[in-house]
Nucleic acid binder design. Structure first.
Lengths: 228, 228
DNA sequence: TCTATACGAGACTTGCCAGTTTCGGATATG
DNA sequence: CATATCCGAAACTGGCAAGTCTCGTATAGA
């Protein structure tokens, strides 16, 4: 749900009811810019440090315009986070290299890293709010964490299907290793989530946990996961 | 008593020339109670939600008394976090079972779990502040995260020394798996860090990453079977 | 015992920010 | 062209909390 305005909106959205309408209709074309601005400010200052004036200034919109669309700051943030899902999980464009390690390594690209760091900063900014709003907690998890875990889950499942990985391994836990460790590194240790870190995580933790590498039981001889 | 009040203290009292001083001396005996109260409120409400009145009420102290000792809310919290280190890492009382798995499992006790959850909640409450205060970030890391990682690091090093684990494994990363995954589970997923979770982490991730086999542990099927 | 000082309680001051209202100007619709 | 409505800007309101100050009481030291 993108628009939360209730009463006046419902009548507005429906093209029917011509009645006697004059003047301008509400312009929703700039909503995405406002939501983007909200996300930016959120990532930079956190929920409590963020003010509506900051968002308005960055979006070059009036404060009143924001309140005409979202009834409160919390609703604005919730909508902004919920609207983030779009734009990245093209299941078509995911790599499929034939090995688990190949798939995981293929995900390490500047674009992905940058996007991931941004999402983690947003999550950091939401922390204060998350504990008091289950709704927001769910939205944040779905938009910021779950997509990354889902990719890992898919890679693992494909590896299991092709016999590269034992079906006994704990897919759920392993799929969450990347987001959890990345969040820890960026938000708590305040160090960059770079390619070197991700590679050592893949070769040192994820593949061993999946039963590959370190000279463990290989169901197939696909693996070249060595070195490091 | 605590050596940390020094800044506020020296400047505040203004004496240094005792000469003819009468009356009462500042009573520092209740400082720990105030710091404890601050930590409690912090864990419950987060830095931004916490008010000095809450701390004063919980410690049954006057608001002015708090400001007589710490010049600002941020200083109070910083001192409170810094003073937490005491009271748990008796290196004598750590288990030494002779196997890595034995040591790790021996750390799973209600006391440890409770303490760990408390620390993680405090860390969650500090998130907003951490990004703007490197000083606090360091103190929080040293008091809340590092002790747990240090225990894992010690267990791993002992396992390496006795030849149970290859010296090639990435000790640093593996030692941080427990705090990182526990923080993720408690603060982001909002699920309890219980014995079942820790066991599956040990058997499904830590031991494999340390190069100890997958088919060995008597972990039965505890791995999955959870949903949400 | 006497006195200076710290104490708890709480009133007070100040500044910030969520949310509201006002206003002049722009614009789609009629 | 007329007009109802939206827009951005900015003034305004109200509440909350950081930090200060006052007061009556308690107590350690001379």
């Amino acid at each position: 749900m993108t628009q939360l305005d209730s009463t006046a909106e419902a009548a507005d959205v429906t093209p029917a009811a011509p009645a006697v309408k004059l003047g301008r209709r509400r312009d929703h074309s700039r909503d995405p810019e406002i939501l983007d601005a909200a996300i930016d400010v959120l990532a930079e200052t956190g929920f409590d440090g963020m003010t509506i004036d900051m968002v308005a200034a960055r979006a070059k919109a009036g404060k009143a315009t924001i309140y005409r669309r979202w009834p409160s700051k919390a609703d604005l943030v919730l909508d902004a986070v919920a609207c983030m899902k779009a734009g990245e999980l093209d299941p078509e464009r995911l790599p499929d290299t034939g090995t688990l390690r190949g798939d995981l390594v293929a995900m390490i690209r500047p674009r992905s890293i940058e996007e991931g760091e941004r999402k983690l900063r947003i999550m950091g900014g939401l922390f204060g709010m998350i504990s008091s709003s289950p709704e927001l907690a769910d939205a944040a998890h779905a938009a910021l964490i779950e997509p990354r875990a889902a990719v890992n889950r898919l890679f693992l499942q494909r590896a299991i299907d092709r016999g590269e990985v034992s079906p006994d391994c704990d897919v759920e836990t392993i799929a969450k290793l990347t987001p959890a460790m990345a969040a820890f590194r960026l938000l708590i240790e305040k160090r960059p989530v770079d390619a070197e870190f991700l590679l050592s995580l893949i070769d040192g933790v994820i593949l061993p946990a999946a039963g590959i590498g370190h000279g463990a039981p290989p169901a197939t001889q696909a693996g070249q996961a060595r070195s490091r």
